[in-house]
């Protein structure tokens, strides 16, 4: 992969991480609101979904690292 393609892939992955973070933030506030109002039903599913989102973010981070390393290896000296 060339440098431009690598940067595009990394930017796309970062945008996806940011999007997942927004969802996770909303989930946390909604769960806290439910907990404080005495409703415990959504707490376990929300924790599960938040965990899946975290795993997704971590996977994207590994993807970014791999792309970054590939680009650095194949990059031509300036």
């Amino acid at each position: 992969m060339n440098r431009r393609g690598g940067l595009t892939a990394i930017d796309g992955a970062m945008a996806l991480i940011a999007l997942l973070l927004v969802v996770q933030m909303w989930l946390l506030t909604a769960t806290l609101e439910a907990y404080l109002s005495g409703h415990s039903e959504p707490i376990f599913p929300a924790a599960l979904i938040s965990g899946l989102i975290f795993v997704g973010c971590f996977g994207l981070f590994l993807f970014i690292r791999r792309i970054d390393a590939n680009v650095r290896i194949t990059r031509q000296p300036d």
């Binding site: 930017d11 970062m14 991480i17 938040s50 989102i53 973010c57």
Partner: peptide
């Protein structure tokens, strides 16, 4: 760098997941 920034984002995601777990534990002991 982009890598540093994405690391920060992932750490933030982990922080929010820990927050969810904290609510879950608090709910168990309520």
């Amino acid at each position: 760098s982009r890598r540093q920034f994405s690391k920060f984002l992932v750490l933030t995601s982990m922080g929010m997941f820990v927050g969810q777990i904290w609510i879950l534990v608090k709910n168990w002991f309520r």
